[in-house]
């Protein structure tokens, strides 16, 4: 399902830090050590909470924008009926007509807009040694990097999605960038 969810990682870090601070109170001999560990984990937890909170708000805004004409609701009902496939690991929802890019910068790309689709190791102009992605080049020059995964751990559905989109892209373009 396509929904904006708040990550609980920051909250877990904060709870663990409080546990460490409480352990410090119970054991006065190791108070300083527990205090330092607790404060460090607390700072990390707060940073994660702030960052994930921003991402959540960004995604919520993007989904609201896309749902102005009911697109997200339609996609969600299509996912439950099986007409649209949702790939959680790749953060993609794909059907015959469109590709939905899930994430903070959620976007809907129509198949007819896509000029080229291919696997890439160059993500946003930088050669990436760890990750690979699917590059969607649109006819108007826009470029989306979707389904970013580590090269060592490529999910089984990666090739399936790539071939599915490739089979539905009808545009044939020649020439350089």
């Amino acid at each position: 399902m396509i929904v904006a969810k708040k990550s609980k990682v920051g909250l877990i870090f904060t709870i663990v830090s409080i546990l460490f601070l409480l352990l410090g109170l119970l054991d006065p001999g190791e108070f300083v050590a527990f205090l330092i560990i607790g404060v460090v984990i607390l700072i990390i937890g707060i940073c994660i909470m702030v960052s994930t909170g921003k991402q959540f708000k960004k995604k919520q805004a993007a989904l609201e924008r896309l749902n102005a004409d009911g697109t997200v609701d339609r996609l969600n009902s299509e996912i439950s009926s099986g007409r649209t496939k949702y790939y959680k690991k790749l953060a993609l929802a794909v059907n015959d007509r469109e590709v939905f890019i899930d994430g903070p910068d959620a976007e809907l790309v129509k198949m007819e807009e896509i000029a080229r689709v291919y696997r890439t190791n160059v993500i946003r102009g930088q050669y990436n040694y760890q990750n690979q992605a699917i590059d969607l080049d649109l006819k108007d020059g826009r470029r989306y990097y979707v389904g970013t995964v580590t090269r060592k751990n490529v999910p089984a559905e990666y090739g399936e999605v790539l071939n599915y989109i490739r089979a539905r892209v009808t545009a044939v373009l020649e020439g350089g960038i």
Binding site: R116, Y118, R119, L173, E174, G176, I177
Partner: peptide
């Protein structure tokens, strides 16, 4: 030199 890539199809 410039040649089409078999993967992406661009002439690079």
């Amino acid at each position: 030199g410039m040649r089409p890539c078999p993967n992406c199809g661009y002439n690079t």
